[in-house]
Write a protein that binds this DNA or RNA. Structure first.
Length: 302
DNA sequence: ATCCAGGAACTGT
DNA sequence: ACAGTTCATGGA
């Protein structure tokens, strides 16, 4: 990965096995998404680094990612942070050669691995967002989950208007740590979801829960245990967050309903596979479970 | 109407 | 350890 400056634009060489178009398909999966926007082949996202709001406009041509800053020239440090953000978001440090090698002999993954080749796990770099988005999505249909997220972001997040469009930042844990359950009930969160979301915000506001500390553990089981000790974080949520935020290749949300549906379709089953059947298939995926799940999720958005 | 949804905690055995 | 129950709401 190298980057060079060229008239306020950052150019980043994409790693091998990177397909921007495939990533955009995944990012465009919901009409209700408000934390990024895809327009004319460009991806727009608002981020905040050191109190500085930065709108990213990301394009890709000839295996080079081009990052522009439509709001104006950010500070040198902010440009550096923006580049790091993109590496994190698109999991660009991952070498996928091992995944494709494994998948080519795997009956479940063979087709989708080659069909979506270059798709990377699109992450949620913000730990608070990853945890609370997972909590919001627990046990409700995805459409309603997006509705709740939209209300949550529009009520407690920060918005910036640029050329007639509003770009949103996800609410900060500091902001959510100071609200009460009733304020989320108004948005139709259940009391339980509200409690979990505020609980996570408070833990982060107190400094008891930090992404860097989790990454330091560097061990799947340690991180998983730590996360599931938090109220509202069960095995599914822990694995989801380890996949989407902590770059854990072995994260495996095996009870995920979307995974079950995808396997049913891919294998042409009459009903959904059982957990034991999935464990059987996954024996071959060791070390690449997160990518297997992500490609299967992708297969649901034909 | 009825069942399910990108679950988790709680309760009883 | 394990199975059943409750939470709560919208979508199909």
């Amino acid at each position: 990965m190298s980057s060079s400056n060229l008239s306020s634009m950052i150019k980043m060489n994409a790693p091998r096995d990177f397909n921007f178009e495939e990533c955009l398909v995944f990012l465009g999966r919901s009409e209700q998404e408000l934390l990024h926007r895809i327009k004319d082949g460009y991806l727009y996202k608002l981020i905040k680094v050191d109190q500085e709001l930065i709108l990213l406009k990301i394009g890709c041509k000839n295996d080079v990612l081009n990052v522009e800053f439509p709001l104006g020239e950010p500070s040198k440090n902010a440009r550096k942070m923006a580049a790091a953000y993109i590496v994190d978001w698109f999991d660009l440090e991952q070498d996928l050669a091992g995944f494709y090698e494994m998948a080519q002999d795997d009956n479940v993954l063979k087709q989708i691995a080659s069909r979506y080749r270059g798709l990377r796990i699109i992450g949620i770099p913000d730990l608070f967002e990853a945890l609370t988005w997972a909590i919001i999505g627990q046990q409700i249909n995805l459409k309603f989950a997006y509705t709740l997220k939209k209300r949550f972001v529009e009520r407690f997040g920060e918005g910036l208007t640029f050329e007639g469009e509003i770009y949103w930042l996800y609410p900060s844990f500091d902001r959510i740590a100071e609200i009460d359950i009733e304020q989320l009930r108004e948005l139709q969160f259940t009391a339980r979801k509200a409690e979990y979301v505020i609980g996570v915000a408070k833990a982060m506001a107190k400094g008891e829960l930090k992404k860097e500390d989790l990454l330091k553990k560097q061990d799947y089981q340690q991180i998983h245990n730590y996360l599931t000790n938090l109220r509202g974080i069960g095995a599914w949520t822990a694995d989801y967050v380890m996949m989407k935020c902590l770059h854990q290749r072995s994260a495996f949300p095996i009870t995920d309903v979307g995974l079950h549906n995808a396997l049913k379709v891919q294998l042409g089953l009459e009903g959904k596979p059982t957990i034991n059947e999935i464990k059987e298939m996954a024996l071959n995926w060791t070390g690449w479970e997160a990518y297997a799940v992500f490609y299967l999720w992708r297969s649901l958005y034909e």
